[in-house]
Computed example of a mutant assay.
Amino acid sequence: MSLAQSPRPIAVYGASGHTARFVLAELGRRGLPAIAVGRSAGTLPSGVPVRQAAIADAAALDAAFAGCAVVINCAGPFLDTALPVAEAAIRAGAAYIDVTAEQASAIAAFEHLDAPARAAGVAVIPAAGFYGGLADLLATSLLGPDGAADELTVAIALDRWWPTAGTRKTGERNTVPRLIVDDGRLVAMPLPAALSTWRFDEPHGEQAMIELPFSETITISRHLRTRSLRAHLTRSSLDDIRDETTPPPAAADPLGRSEQRFEIVVRARAGDTVRTATASGRDIYAVSAPLVVEAASRLLRPGAPRAGALSLGEAFDADDFLRALAPEPLRLG
């Protein structure tokens, strides 16, 4: 039986975490059956079936994902969790999706999981959340699935960044040098990080920026051709992360989203032609949920993408995918 014909549930690993709770809520809103999986049964949410599995226990992971159609991994640091969880998903005959912002984790997924996923006939889609996936969709929308550009620039504005405990833990763990694309190749980002300014739409306006690439560099360069790919983040939001007193996000609406506002801009230059695509919305953790759940739901449909390790923009029609999320939770420009 193919994934497209299957009524099997979707497993959410790391289900006690902040982002995972948005994912479970989104699955429930869409009427998709879910299973909450975590390392400690006592912290798992109520209202859905639960299973317990530690990262180091391959047999427990196999049992947790048995009978599932898709596994969505929300448990960071993904440098530690992505390969064990994805390998168990593949053994179970399930597709795999995660929300990593970590470049090294996304690279490992593409390098190590493509062949096993193809052999199992399932898709593996790393970095399908706000970082990685959203910029990849915007860039693919600009260039087309097989497009090329001389230069791609990603600029992200956050009015505040209230980090979760998982974000702080990942920051401590992720000490791998960051990569950019220069002369068509992935290379280490020059240090010190470049400073610049960028004018966003309101309410952000003109912002001081710092070069800080996330997993979008890996997802975009996976399938789009560009001689240069650089990414920048508002310096004030990086200051929030570096400040140990910055609190975690607090719910400020009925959906549990924080007050945080974001805008992400992808600018493509080919010769003298410059095109720009934007997406804006509320709460980078919350918006990852509709992104990954939209991907999971499309994996269950007839005509699901080919098997193997794929980026979000590579797996799906980027324009159609983005339209499905507008005008809520994304406003597109």
Rank of each mutant, 00 (worst) to 15 (best):
289 A>Q: 04
153 T>P: 02
143 L>T: 09
19 T>W: 00
14 G>V: 04
3 L>A: 14
65 F>A: 07
224 L>R: 04
156 I>C: 13
159 D>G: 03
258 S>M: 01
326 A>C: 03
15 A>C: 02
249 P>V: 04
179 L>M: 13
110 F>S: 08
56 A>L: 04
172 E>Y: 09
203 P>A: 08
107 I>S: 07
226 T>S: 11
86 A>H: 02
315 A>F: 02
74 C>E: 00
151 E>N: 14
303 G>F: 08
114 D>P: 02
119 A>L: 13
283 D>F: 03
143 L>K: 09
172 E>W: 12
173 R>L: 05
189 M>P: 13
12 V>K: 04
196 S>D: 15
262 F>H: 03
67 G>K: 03
205 G>N: 05
311 S>G: 15
244 E>F: 14
323 R>L: 04
212 L>F: 14
304 A>H: 13
295 A>E: 08
278 T>C: 11
122 V>Y: 06
322 L>A: 11
331 R>F: 09
169 K>H: 15
192 P>Y: 01
279 A>R: 00
147 G>K: 08
78 F>R: 06
306 R>C: 08
252 A>G: 10
323 R>C: 01
314 E>H: 14
52 Q>C: 14
142 L>V: 10
314 E>N: 12
30 R>W: 07
63 A>K: 06
14 G>R: 03
249 P>M: 01
42 G>N: 13
62 D>A: 14
176 V>C: 05
236 S>E: 11
220 I>M: 09
182 D>H: 15
322 L>C: 08
145 P>Q: 15
137 L>H: 04
162 W>P: 02
181 V>W: 05
302 P>A: 12
167 T>C: 14
178 R>N: 11
183 D>Q: 15
163 P>K: 02
158 L>Y: 10
243 D>T: 06
94 A>K: 05
41 A>R: 15
208 A>G: 13
164 T>D: 02
283 D>A: 10
200 F>M: 05
60 A>I: 07
201 D>M: 09
26 E>M: 10
320 D>E: 15
209 M>Q: 12
137 L>I: 07
309 A>R: 03
28 G>R: 11
108 A>V: 01
156 I>Q: 09
285 Y>P: 01
89 A>F: 01
163 P>Y: 04
36 A>L: 05
101 A>K: 10
252 A>K: 06
298 R>Y: 03
195 L>W: 12
222 R>G: 11
284 I>K: 12
128 A>D: 05
15 A>P: 00
54 A>W: 04
121 G>Y: 11
223 H>G: 10
17 G>L: 00
283 D>N: 09
210 I>G: 12
139 A>E: 08
170 T>L: 11
286 A>G: 02
163 P>L: 01
221 S>M: 03
53 A>L: 07
60 A>M: 05
160 R>F: 05
69 A>W: 05
23 V>K: 03
198 W>I: 13
225 R>N: 12
281 G>Y: 00
258 S>L: 00
280 S>T: 12
189 M>T: 07
308 G>T: 08
329 P>Q: 00
195 L>Y: 13
262 F>Q: 01
279 A>P: 00
98 D>H: 00
159 D>W: 07
204 H>Q: 04
275 R>S: 13
116 P>R: 08
172 E>T: 13
185 R>L: 14
